[in-house]
Amino acid sequence: MTDFKPLSRKELAARIAQDIPEGWYVNLGIGIPTLIADVIPAEKEIILHSENGVLGFGPAPASDKIDPWLINAGKQHVTLRPGGSFFHHADSFAMIRGGHLDLCVLGAFEVSSSGDLANWATSERDNAPAVGGAMDLVAGTRRVWVATEHTTREGLPKLVKACSYPLTAPGVVSRIYTNLAIIEVMNGNFTVKEMIPGITKEILQEYTGAKLLFEEVEYV
């Protein structure tokens, strides 16, 4: 057994933040994506969009600087960077649906090798499915990246041939960042671009529910 240490949620958020170019308008979903706001360097101008009507939000405030009127999509307190703005929900989703955002980073229950995303309901009879803005985001933003643990808590693969949960949308995910690897979704395949130190191709494949292609893999 080789020795490897999966990235923590914060390390994963930081790895994604590295890949977001300055100048992009980006929406962050609930869960790991939310943590990205806390690790973007102050001098790198990435404009974060929150579906509840905030553009240009920043990291979480210090505990004595909480503004009760300023929250993100996950209903956590955030700060506003200089140049930030507020707007109502219809305008917020005009930005999303109208194709004005460069990227959204979302969590996932499952992603398929054809880029299908399932992240809102656990069955067609889910007691209280929680779609929120996910379907609008994937329908409207220019790129959809997923940030997730590579497997479920029970160790089952989240990267699969075909999703078993109800879809958020078919064929929308272009890149997946997990705690083990960075994977591009292209032409119906998962192609590994980067793996964490110490892990082998065989082990990564074992944790994945669809065939992985390995082209020019970088070890970080």
């Binding site: 929900h89 917020s92 929120g132 803005g133 379907m135 609008d136 329908a139 879809l167 949308a169």
Partner: peptide, 29 residues
Amino acid sequence: PQGTLAERIRAAGAGIPAFYTPTTVGTIL
């Protein structure tokens, strides 16, 4: 879906009876 909810409400206020959106295409909704 949240954006559809906002737009359906806006449409009601703006006198638009219905509209088309890409949101939910290919899903059970």
